Simulated scan of single mutants.
Amino acid sequence: MATHEHEITEPVDLCLPDGRLNPAARGWSRQPLHRANLRGWGRTKRWEYWCVTTPTHLVALTVSDLDFLALNTVYVLEFGPEGREFERTSIVPGGHGVRLPEVIAGTVGSPAVVVGPQRPTGGKVRIEIRGKDGGTRLRARCLTPRPPQGARGTLGGEEAVETVEVDLFAALPVGHETLSVVVPWSGRRFQYTSKHTARPASGTVRIGGRVLEFGEDAWAVLDHGRGRWPRSVDWNWGAASGRTGGHTVGLQFGGSWTRGTGATENAICMDGRLTKIGEELEWRWSPTDFMAPWTITSAGERPAVDLTFTPFHNRSTRTDAGPIANRTDQCFGHYTGLVRDDEGREIAVDQLLGWAEDVHMRW
């Protein structure tokens, strides 16, 4: 389904003075150009999600302001049968002290962003996202339970804790293009999302006395979101970054939530140049076996996307707490197949590390 989306090339306000979607904001851009001037409550959601991967481990940081509460989360996964996985979340009732900007930290004219408690104590999570010359600095600190020796999986044993510290830099090379798009359900329900893939990353993650190095083959992905959402929604999201077929490639795919809006969040970034895919993709997976291979394809005899995703780990969460109910299956794995850029060049994708997820959210 072609969307015939309009490319935005000048800065624009997301909202009109009365809070409705600005018609001039509909479309997509190759760099963040929307000022997300959301006001007040009314199903307003703001978040930053960063995931930085290496061939052996990953770390994800989430800061979200959901109107009635805020969530700060640190997630770390070490791959392999002997690897470790943990997740620590701090819930902030009313979102007090969590302030997310109208524009992405690190872009021209953007203020520095500091979110989370000033001094992490107990089980609290502190996350800092600051713009720096040439990119974005990601820092986090929390305490996490220490697992029994030789244990695998989510850490247990609250009586024994260790400090986790994240200090990473996500570079944004000059000329590197990213995808920003407005998805409009209506004049009062809409989402502005800015998805960044294949941003070179470096730094360290310290878990107790161990240090995980993020270096030459580390890549950062950003999901920056600002909008006003329906009460209940389903979505798919897939992303991957790395070197394959002689190129640096970033994959960004969405599904389900954009249908019927005239917008998509599908794109390929090859060597820093973005190809916008103006059609809905066909997602296939098993809802009873998320570890089975997934496929993501586009239409036509020469499809822009023809990929198989093979998971090796499912980060599965279920929440049903008052106003929020969530079912998330975020599978990490590898993409194989082919994609084509807007010049018709075919790029082989071979074991590109990333994820694919299926989410139902009531919030």
Rank of each mutant, 00 (worst) to 15 (best):
H4V: 03
E7N: 14
T9V: 15
D13Y: 08
L14E: 01
L14C: 04
L14W: 02
R26Y: 09
W28P: 04
R30A: 13
W41A: 14
G42D: 07
G42W: 10
G42A: 06
E48V: 03
W50C: 00
C51E: 09
P55D: 14
H57M: 15
L61G: 00
L66A: 00
T73E: 11
T73A: 13
E78D: 14
P93M: 06
G95A: 05
P101H: 01
T107N: 01
V108Q: 08
G109I: 08
P111M: 09
P117Q: 07
T121N: 05
G123S: 13
V125R: 04
R126F: 07
I127N: 02
I129V: 15
G134D: 05
G134K: 05
R146Y: 06
P147G: 13
L155S: 08
L155Y: 15
G157W: 08
E159G: 03
V164S: 01
D167K: 05
G175A: 12
S180A: 15
W185T: 03
F190N: 05
Y192K: 06
T193W: 02
S194A: 11
E213I: 13
G215N: 07
W219G: 00
A220C: 09
R228G: 00
S232M: 06
W257N: 06
W257V: 10
W257Y: 15
E282W: 00
R284S: 10
F290W: 08
P293C: 10
V305P: 03
D306M: 05
D306W: 07
T317A: 12
R318Q: 13
D320E: 15
D320A: 14
Q330S: 06
H334W: 11
R340W: 08
E343K: 12
Q351N: 14
L352D: 04
D358K: 11
R362I: 15
R362H: 13
W363A: 11
